[in-house]
Design a binder for these strands. Structure first.
Lengths: 211, 211
DNA sequence: TATTGTTTATACAGACTGTATAGTTCCCAG
DNA sequence: CTGGGAACTATACAGTCTGTATAAACAATA
């Protein structure tokens, strides 16, 4: 039998404050320090809580990191994404998507990089692949939908090129791409602009449009 | 005084066999297992050597990983790269570069991913950025040179767009891009083809050419 | 008041890194 | 052949970190 499990209700009750304080502390620590210094002890200390509480709330260091990742992923707005998808002109949707993605990546760039790195280390190859694919699936689905709409309305890209285009869009809008560009000194809006333009180029829709 | 340092000659002498056996074992272990199981103990065991020997040769786990990274980075041919740069038509150089990069990434994809992840975790933010930039500098320089030559000969991209184009090429030819595409089920030549085409599109040089 | 959920203190087992120290084996120069 | 040094090994140990166990303090609430 598993010795003891997490408290039953993790989304409510007085424990919620503690959980969020711990998560905030974990985030800060992940940002400022390397993962060498990311110990349960220090997270607890920074959260003003005992080490045992962290284990009580999250069960293990790994689960704490997963919760942290979930929190970061959640905050980046699925809602804004749905909104952009509703635009009449799919080219507007595309620009909107790129902006949303960039905003998400920018919101916690350092923490995200650490967590993605951490994810790349943990499991065996197959599981890591599955994780990574799942993690980016929502982004791909949105891009696919928009690309299809654009193909339908503008006749480009050709039907058989849509998959290629979507693959490239997925690459361009990935966190890693954002990170590379940000390292080069560009800021968020700059990157969004560059990527939007590149996306149009790749789709073959290059004519300037009015709005 | 530092207690004891690495043996003076690390590129010669009878110790070379041991070093390379350890590095090979480290590589294998990094590929098959996660980094949880990547302990000095297990590396030593897999290399058929005692744990102390690993410390004698490399000094620390971190230095072992750095040596492993250097070895992987070295094997991917700087020489083939220089060769591609010599081609008469810079468009051929570009395709050649993309192929070289893809070949490099493909050669040890899983190990590279682990090591890159590991690099993303270690140091504080600033140092990590510096590392990452340095690590990819050679790739960027090559892309920059080729882009300039293409601009000069083909008039595209426009001078003020070269930096944008190079940034995008850097993104497309990064390991992370390759990894994303490979996860999607594409093989090396497939990816090289896709990326070459995309590079041409981004540079604005799209007409079909004879070879 | 009794119960239940939450937090804490303390203690401990197990694993890993890194250091210290001394011993072994092997090759090579004198 | 011999002495010395380089490479390797065995053992032991300190320090840190994770995770578990256990019991106790505390709070809210039924």
């Amino acid at each position: 039998m598993p010795p003891r499990r997490r408290p039953a209700s993790r989304a409510e009750g007085p424990a919620r404050d503690t959980r969020s304080r711990i998560l905030a502390a974990a985030r800060d620590l992940a940002v400022e320090k390397g993962f060498d210094e990311f110990t349960v002890e220090k997270v607890a200390e920074q959260a003003g809580v005992s080490r045992m509480t962290v284990y009580y709330q999250f069960g293990s260091k790994q689960e704490l990191l997963e919760a942290l990742f979930d929190q970061l992923a959640e905050r980046g707005g699925m809602d804004r994404l749905a909104e952009e998808m509703k635009r009449e002109d799919p080219l507007d949707s595309l620009a909107g998507l790129v902006a949303v993605f960039c905003g998400f990546w920018a919101s916690d760039r350092v923490a995200l990089r650490r967590l993605r790195s951490w994810g790349g280390l943990r499991p065996a190859a197959a599981a890591a692949d599955a994780d990574a694919i799942e993690r980016d699936a929502w982004r791909r689905r949105a891009l696919e939908t928009v690309a299809r709409r654009i193909a339908q309305r503008y006749g480009k890209p050709a039907r058989r090129d849509v998959k290629n285009a979507v693959d490239l869009l997925q690459v361009l809008t990935s966190f890693e791409s954002y990170d590379v560009l940000a390292r080069g000194g560009r800021d968020e809006s700059d990157i969004a602009e560059l990527l939007s333009q590149a996306a149009l180029t790749i789709l073959g829709v290059t004519e300037a449009r009015g709005h």
